Simulated scan of single mutants.
Amino acid sequence: MTRKNLSLKKYRQAEAVKLSLGKPFFESEGIAIYQGDSLELGSNLPHSVFDALISDPPYCSGAAGTAVGADPSKKYCHSGNTLGRPSFGGDFRDQRSFKYWCSLWIGQALRACKETAYGLVFTDWRQLSTMIDALQAGGFCFKGLISWNKGRGARAPHKGFFRHQCEYIPWGTKGAVPRLTDRGPFDGCYSIPVLQKDKHHMTGKPTELMQRLVQCVPKGGIALDPFCGSGTTLVASALEGRQAIGFEASEEYCEIAARRIEAAKRGELMKYERPVAV
């Protein structure tokens, strides 16, 4: 997306973000990645710029609060096998500290969002009530729940369980829900399978799902993802004609996200390929 594709107002808003945050790790026509801690970067965001917060933070689901260095692969991957995907940090908080931490970065995002902006944050069944509380503590007005059905491939500990095949997206707005004429209403439930060729992070979400969610952002508008991981929110934004800013602590994932965005700008989806052992 180039300057000529944007209104002057939207262009100036994107430039205001860059002036506040400095030089990005990666930038391409309205999409930018900043490497660093989400709270540190979020404290420098300008006010009233973003059209939506759309993010998939670490769930810290079932975390005991004592294993700060624990490897998430033991929790999120079958037999701890990541299939070559890098691990990630920040998944160690207990429920109380998780709620406090989320309310901090959500509050930062709220200040950076425009009036009537959307807030969409992923979570699972264990942390659902906690994330709903954190969304409201951060200042968004809780409006409902979006469900994502991953399909019957979802794990169950044994045959006595109902499968945990849904994850959830509490959503709200900064103030009143906007009355739209150019898009919406949006689906409240998505049944989209996880495809290994499209999964670049061990907890990555399908690109198709994120493409559907970024529809709440107006064409040319800006989404904020403080935990962009392998960059799926940014990739979806590029494919759907939106701008996006992402934060990511891991340099390795910043590089993966950058390559995926470059492919998306060519109208392609980069396929995941397991690294070859040397």
Rank of each mutant, 00 (worst) to 15 (best):
T82V: 10
A52M: 07
V121E: 05
C254H: 03
K10D: 14
T130A: 07
M210H: 14
F186I: 08
D91I: 04
D71G: 13
R126N: 09
L39W: 00
R212F: 14
E27Q: 05
R163M: 02
S28F: 00
M270T: 04
I31D: 00
P170Y: 10
D56N: 15
V177P: 14
K219C: 09
C102Y: 10
C228Q: 04
L209A: 08
G138Y: 04
E208C: 05
H47A: 09
S250K: 01
S103V: 10
Q211Y: 11
Q196C: 06
A134K: 08
A263Y: 13
G231Y: 01
Q215T: 15
C166K: 09
R179V: 11
N149W: 11
D198Q: 08
A238L: 02
E29H: 10
P157C: 09
A70T: 06
L19E: 03
Y118W: 08
S7T: 15
I106K: 00
K197H: 08
T66W: 13
A64C: 15
G80Q: 12
L45P: 02
Y253H: 01
R12Q: 09
T2R: 04
P157T: 10
R266D: 03
F26Y: 08
G160P: 05
S48E: 14
L120C: 05
T2Y: 07
A63K: 11
F161M: 12
A52K: 08
E251Q: 09
V276M: 11
N5V: 02
S48R: 10
A63T: 12
Y34K: 00
A258V: 00
G231Q: 02
T66S: 12
D51W: 04
V278M: 09
L213W: 09
C77E: 06
I222Q: 10
K99I: 08
L45Q: 03
S230K: 08
R3H: 12
G153S: 13
A137R: 06
D133Y: 04
M131W: 12
P46F: 06
K219D: 14
R260H: 01
S48Q: 11
G69Y: 10
G42H: 01
G229T: 06
K23V: 05
G153C: 03
G267K: 01
D182Y: 02
F161H: 15
H164E: 12
S48Y: 03
M202L: 11
S38Y: 05
G84M: 11
Y253N: 02
L195H: 05
M1Y: 07
